[in-house]
Amino acid sequence: MHPAISVILFTVTSGAGFGAVALIGAGYPLSDNPVFFFLTALVAGALAVIGLASSTFHLGHPERAWRAFSQWRSSWLSREGVASVIALTLFGIFVLARLFTDLPTQGLGWAVSAFSIATVFTTSMIYAQLRTVPHWHSWLTPAVYLAFSLASGFLLVAAAGKASALGEIPVALIAMLILLIAWALKIVWWQRAAGASLASRGMTSGSATGLGKIGEVRLLERPHTGGNYLTREMVHQIGRKHAAKLRFIALVIGAALPVVIAAAVAWWEFATPVLGLAFVAMLAGLFVERWLFFAEAKHSVSLYYE
């Protein structure tokens, strides 16, 4: 599949943003200073909004995007739109209520968390629902998206928050643990993907043309000598060539580096804002990981073009 920059940017940054929003809603201890609290909330919300805004860049008609709220009964993309707007609206009310009133906000906070997590889940289901792309069509896809969202979101709030430990456990140690779980899930995802070829789902040139009953099927000529929307969007091949190297890069920048930083923070008891470095490294690693998520995925339409 074609790895569109806007979609990569969207899924990574809004994942981190909604992860952070979910944790703030769940009551992660942030600064008592109202200005600093507001800025932290602003960064988390902005990441989520930037992601959503960038996702509209790849639309043919962004001016009609409002229509996408209507089909939540059948469409995961529509559900994502609905969930994200509810989550962000509730988050805005939550932040204002915390800043300017003494009203109890914990109930609202849980609702913010629930809708933020639901947003990330619906994003992942846009891909996981597609039977046409066996790489994605698994419950592991939402698991990985949620884990990465919470891990990157946790690094952000941990860097900005006032707590050095939650209960008895140092924040950096928790960060390390979440990072390891998230990347372990991704490695399981990669392992499953290695076995999830089109052929393993029964999709071959033979079944795509129905000619497999006669003999071995091979494409002799494409319909046109030039490319088309389908070949650019779904028969993208460049990414697969360097897949192994890129996975290594993603693991070094997105997993090893943040884990080492978190370990250093835990060991030498650095101030938690140092975890901000881990957040930046992880985000960079996730861009590579997400690029591969698209570039490596094979769509069944390639059976008619390869």
């Binding site: 040139s205 043309t209 000619l211 006669i214 003999g215 071995e216 099927v217 091979r218 494409l219 002799l220 000529e221 494409r222 319909p223 046109h224 088309n228 008619y304 073009y305």
Partner: peptide, 8 residues
């Protein structure tokens, strides 16, 4: 679109 296949 018209594709052309070879069947063996």
């Amino acid at each position: 679109r018209i594709h052309t296949f070879e069947v063996s």
